[in-house]
Amino acid sequence: MNDNELITAVRESVADVRSATPVARIISRGRAVRARRRIPGVAGTLVVAAGTALAVTTLLPSGHPGLPASGHPGSQPASARLAAWTVAMQANGDIDITINQLQNPAGLQSTLRADGLPVSVSFSGPPLSASCRPYDTQKDVLSAVAQWNTSDDGAFLVINPKALPSGTGVAIFDEPGAGIPSPSPGTPRHGSGRPAGITRPAGITGPPAGITGPLSVGLVYASQQCTG
């Protein structure tokens, strides 16, 4: 076999491989990259907590007040950019959420709901409103719904609405009461409780400056009062 035959064989070995991603999807993903680059100082770690919820620690720039944020209509197909957080709907239905500061939870909640995600967002007070009921589930189910991703441009939360169990929604909340023991599985809780299994993530010794505790994600039973 001479060099030309070998080169031809190598080229032909992958000749049938073609990109199937539409350019519109690439551009949408590129917009999310561009939006994340505009938000400085975001980093974080997602830890699968014992039980059935994810906990996310978001590092906030100390003493850096966020700009006033406002409600935003649905983010599809481009990204919504706010100082405190950004939401970007991906072509595959995933929702990328970058939270820079724990401000304007109502705006984030309405933006996510406009994107079709049943969600309750709380950055202060009780983790869940009185109308929300935590949904007990397995860790892998929750992991399929919420993932913490990082890129060279920062860190962001990815929600896959298609992975939500029927009749459930997502709760995103600050957890100033970190360290509270996990509730017993199966124990019904209403109002002041948290989605089952939330505990302070192991290995996190204290909240970074400017944040009161880990930002957590859990599942709740969907209802008009709780998740819209």
Binding site: S19, A20, T21, I26, R29, G30, V33, R34
Partner: peptide
Amino acid sequence: QDTARDLVDEAFARAWA
């Protein structure tokens, strides 16, 4: 191939950005 597709999509997205 799956990983290659995802990495190339990401690289093109960064190229667009």
